[in-house]
């Protein structure tokens, strides 16, 4: 294909996106579009899978049967999200095994928030309320992103995430209305998860490298700072409602902006965790790689069995024919 032809295709491609048409797997797309989507979708899938670990940590210790069932269902949903996001990635010509390889070797990133430990039951509430809350703010705009399989996956993911967020908030509310120990547990969880949740929405716009191109492809529709402001404005009244205090002495309603002003985020901590030195980066990776390695003989057995079955089927078909 000549350079001119490619330019022509690119122009048509960008025009389709501008018209809000969906790009489907078999459509022509620029290589950069394909790569950017694989990167973002797989990062999202990895986050779902790693995200199962901090919450999985409390399944055996959930305080009531009702909470245990809800937590199991939630973590199972996350596995499901991982599954269809990996499948969406596969439509772009990359296999799940390749993506796992990238995760396990540290080449691919996942959301840094999952590198914090879950030390009390209230962390199950805080993760649902804050982490899923921030995730929804990030993800709702993606329901209308340009790549069809991603947009469709996100519609389902967002529905489930919003259920998870309500569930998390409900855990926090129950604790906040409970005994002094329970209230203290809830406040402590909020104190620990608040700032990492704000960081989850990404570096400040000045530091963010992918924004402009991503905006054009509708992979991103608002800047990180705008999303963060939206999250804070939405969450502060919820904390007020249940009588918990946001751990930010600089938090103040700004009448003119009709938004909250907030304190300085510790970006050193953010980069430390992103670069692999958070409290649980090593544990999460060991758990993931360990499960994968321990499962190798199981996956090999399943493959070998499937091949044997195929062979048996062919042999019996041949016999029938002859």
């Amino acid at each position: 294909m000549s350079e001119e032809q490619i330019k022509d295709l690119e122009a048509q491609f960008e025009a389709r996106i501008a018209r809000d048409e969906k790009i489907e797997p078999k459509d022509w797309m620029p290589e950069k579009y394909r790569k950017t989507h694989i990167r973002q979708m797989s990062q999202h899938a990895h986050s779902e899978i790693i995200g199962m670990l901090p919450e999985g940590n409390w399944i055996t210790r959930a305080p009531s049967l009702r909470r245990k069932v809800a937590l199991l269902a939630k973590v199972q949903d996350e596995a499901g999200h991982g599954l269809y996001l990996y499948s969406a990635c596969e439509t772009l010509g990359v296999s799940r095994d390749e993506l796992y390889e990238q995760l396990h070797t540290g080449k691919a990133k996942y959301s840094s928030i999952f590198n914090y430990p879950t030390v009390t039951w209230a962390d199950m509430g805080a993760i649902g309320w804050l982490v899923d809350g921030a995730a929804i703010i990030n993800q709702v705009p993606l329901c209308s992103t340009s790549y069809g399989p991603y947009a469709r996956a996100m519609i389902r993911v967002c529905k489930e995430e919003s259920f998870h967020q309500r569930q998390g908030f409900e855990i926090m509310m129950k604790l906040a209305q409970g005994t002094p120990e329970q209230k203290e547990m809830a406040q402590d969880a909020l104190n620990r998860w608040w700032w990492p949740s704000l960081m989850m929405l990404g570096p400040t716009d000045a530091e963010s490298v992918h924004t402009e191109q991503s905006m054009k492809w509708k992979l991103k529709r608002k800047s990180n700072d705008d999303l963060r402001q939206q999250f804070i404005d939405q969450t502060v009244p919820q904390a007020d409602l249940i009588g918990l205090t946001i751990p930010d002495p600089d938090l103040k309603w700004n009448e003119e902006r009709q938004s909250y002003d907030f304190g300085e985020i510790d970006w050193d901590e953010f980069w430390q965790v992103v670069k692999g030195h958070g409290p649980c980066n090593k544990e999460r990776m060991n758990a993931r790689v360990g499960a994968w390695n321990r499962g190798e003989w199981v996956r090999d057995a399943a493959m070998a069995y499937a091949e044997k079955q195929q062979k048996r089927k062919r042999t019996s078909l041949k016999k029938e024919v002859s």
């Binding site: 199962m52 245990k68 973590v75 596995a79 996956r299």
Partner: peptide
């Protein structure tokens, strides 16, 4: 329930969690 997130594949993980549920 203790196995959730630690299965040999995503599919078996989901299935075992489902049985637990």
């Amino acid at each position: 329930g203790a196995l959730t997130g630690h299965g040999p594949s995503l599919e078996t993980d989901i299935a075992c969690t489902n049985i637990s549920l």
